[in-house]
């Protein structure tokens, strides 16, 4: 065990990058859960990982490939809205199949593939931190603006149409920012850590928050707290970040005594 590494300046950028994303992803997850679309986060993450691998093989920046693939996924989600979870499953299968084939047939992709699935957060650099900072600065105010149409879409789906308005452009915008945020998190934190941060904090917040506003704050706090503990444990015990993050967050759910049948 070596917890002195926590104070090493080498790990500051990775830690801050992950911390920003750990605050942002649960906010996205609150609305995905509201819309019964939390599985879309895993589809976005899988698509982003496949896109990142493809970009690397093509000699492009991985982050660009991840983001472009997530944009395609967000667009597909919008076009296949009626397919619901079926569309997400198809995207996941496609991304998984493509990603594994790349890993199996390209030596460089093999290493990067392990990094994406294990969640090698410690390899993130200034570019990731900058992207995460920009994402937070753009997505948080956008989410605030989109909150009302997203909530109305679940509670009063006819609200806008009865007033002669079309809410679809705003809902599509949410798909885009969700896809981009998850893509950025995937290439920084890994597939399952990104998904865990979208899924678990809102699960707890929905159970315990006294209002929507409090739920948003609580989910971000849980995300940042769970992430920080995971970061410290994985670094101190020299374990891959992704699995540690997933286990820590699931243990949080278990300790909160949530009823699995209501998830």
């Amino acid at each position: 065990m070596n917890f002195d590494l926590l104070l090493d300046p080498l790990f500051r950028v990775p830690f801050l990058t992950g911390l920003l994303l750990a605050a942002l992803l649960p906010l996205i997850g609150m609305y995905l859960r509201l819309r019964h679309e939390w599985l879309a986060a895993l589809a976005f993450a899988q698509m982003a990982s496949a896109g990142a691998l493809l970009a690397m093989v093509a000699g492009w920046p991985m982050i660009l490939g991840g983001v472009l693939a997530a944009l395609v996924a967000a667009l597909a989600k919008g076009l296949m809205a009626r397919a619901g979870a079926g569309a997400y499953a198809l995207m996941m299968l496609l991304a998984w199949g493509g990603g594994v084939l790349l890993v199996a047939n390209h030596p460089l992709a093999e290493q990067a593939g392990h990094a994406l699935f294990d969640g090698q957060l410690y390899f993130t650099g200034d570019g990731h931190l900058l992207a995460a900072g920009i994402a937070c600065a753009v997505v948080v105010p956008l989410l605030s603006w989109l909150s009302r149409p997203l909530l109305l879409g679940r509670l009063f789906p006819e609200f806008y149409r009865a007033r002669g308005l079309d809410a679809r452009p705003r809902l599509m915008l949410f798909d885009l920012i969700a896809g981009l945020s998850v893509a950025l998190a995937t290439v920084s934190l890994g597939v399952m850590a990104a998904f865990a941060l979208v899924f678990v904090p809102p699960l707890v917040a929905y159970r315990f928050a006294r209002s929507w506003r409090a739920g948003m704050a609580l989910s971000a706090v849980i995300g940042m707290g769970g992430y920080s503990v995971s970061f410290a444990v994985s670094l101190g015990l020299d374990q891959p970040f992704g699995p540690v993050c997933a286990v820590v967050l699931v243990m949080l759910v278990a300790s909160a005594s949530l009823d699995p049948s209501r998830m």
Binding site: A205, R210, S211, G215
Partner: peptide, 12 residues
């Protein structure tokens, strides 16, 4: 399971 208050509902 949705953490929304009555006041928030009316506000929507």
């Amino acid at each position: 399971g949705v953490p929304l208050t009555g006041r928030e509902l009316l506000g929507l």
